[in-house]
Amino acid sequence: MLINILGIVLILAIIWWFWIAKKPLLVVNTAQSVIKIIVKNGVYEPARIKIPANTSVTLQFLRHDPSGCAEYVIFSNLNISKQLPLNQPVDVVLNISEPGEYVFSCQMNMYRGTLVVA
C-alpha cells in the first residue's frame, strides 16, 4: 500500500513540477536591450524571459554546451534560426509587437526556453 501511495505521490509531483509549477521568469525592463542567455548543461539560462512588446531586444546566446543538440536555436513562431558556434556570442535581435508566449528551442525540442511578450 505504502509503495502505491508513494508512486502516486511521485506521479503527482512530476505533473506539478514539470507542467503546473511556475517557472522562474527573468523580467527585462525596457532599458535593458541585451539579454545574455547561456547554453550549458542541456538548458538555456535564463529559460523564461519576459520582454516588453514593440521594443527592440537583443538576445545574446553564448553556447558553452558542446553537445550537437545545442548547435542551433530556433524560434519556430518567428521563423528565426541561428547557428550557435561554441564559445562565441550570437545575437538575435527581436522586436515583437504581438503579446504572447514564444518558444525557442534546439532542433530536437529538448533545450527549451520561452519569451513572454507583454
Binding site: W17, F18, A21, K23, P24, K40, N41, G42, V43, Y44, E45, A47, M110, Y111, R112
Partner: peptide, 10 residues
Amino acid sequence: HRAFLNHVAT
C-alpha cells in the same frame, strides 16, 4: 539536474 531546476525534463 540543471534541467530539473528549470522545470524541464530531457
